[in-house]
């Protein structure tokens, strides 16, 4: 116990730590490697997130286009109903044929 207290009080009294050159290099190396790994990990996560957002955007765009497409199909069908076409034809002055005459195609 007295040795422990001596060690603590010594540290408090001295207020400084000494390290040899090899230890310094080792610690520095560890710090650099950790920094690199962290940076690479962050880069990877950031790229994945960016790609994920991009895909999400494309999906949203695809859904939007799908909605537009479906609505356009309905709009076109509404504009070209049989009754609608008939009204348009009548407005253009066309009338239904009274009789139809079939002509034989002799070249067939």
């Amino acid at each position: 116990m007295p040795d422990f207290l001596e060690w603590v009080t010594h540290g408090v009294k001295q207020g400084r730590f000494e390290m040899n050159a090899a230890a310094t290099v080792g610690v520095s190396l560890v710090v650099v490697v950790l920094t690199l790994v962290t940076a690479l990990y962050l880069m990877l996560i950031s790229r994945t997130a960016a790609r994920g957002r991009y895909i999400e955007g494309l999906q949203a765009q695809a859904f939007g286009l799908q909605r537009e497409n479906q609505q356009l199909m309905v709009d076109i069908a509404e504009q070209s109903t049989v009754s609608g076409l008939r009204e348009r034809a009548e407005a253009l002055g066309l009338v239904a044929a009274e009789t139809i005459e079939f002509v034989a195609d002799l070249e067939q």
Partner: peptide, 12 residues
Amino acid sequence: LPIPWQPVAGEL
């Protein structure tokens, strides 16, 4: 809202 931290499914 989803956090796209992992690749999302490509197929609709």
